[in-house]
Amino acid sequence: MYEIRIHSRGGQGGVTAAKLIALAAFRDGKHATACPFYGAERRGAPVVSFVRIDDEPIKIYSQIHEPDLVIVLDTSIMDVVDVLQGLKPNGEVLLNSPHPIAGCNGTCHHVDLTGIALAENLVVAGSPILNTPVLGALAKMGIVTLPSARTAIREMFSDERNVKAAEAAYEELKA
């Protein structure tokens, strides 16, 4: 089983990102669940969502304590949340950042999702959309396939710029 923990702030689309990843994995023929952890917090507060991908049906509902991958959609959270907590020894990290950030053990990928969203003018109510480009980055990492990423995005969004943003993230991801 492959387990992903997504750190974001309320309103940034972390919950939808989890759903999109699960949908793409599902379209790859895998079993997948996406599970947000809802706190009592409001817009702007740190939130966490979980994705599980497996070849077998998934029966686990509890939180992910030892993720294979940690995604950080807003690196400012790293000052207040220990995003690496429980990360498996060979686990990976994906940061929404134009540059690498020190202190990430193991394999750390980064891509400027915010920049990509702004370049495509993917902004809703003042917030750049990060959840569709992140799928491109995951495709590059081999967690989902690029065709399934495109399919998942098209199933949930009608605006083709979301697919373009994912493709841009696929190209720009750096380890």
Binding site: A18, K19, A22, L23, F26, H31, A32, T33, A34, C35, P36, F37, Y38, I58, Y61
Partner: peptide, 12 residues
């Protein structure tokens, strides 16, 4: 059904 853990989980 269980609040959040099933109401809000995405599955097939």
């Amino acid at each position: 059904l269980d609040g959040f853990s099933l109401s809000h989980i995405t599955q097939s």
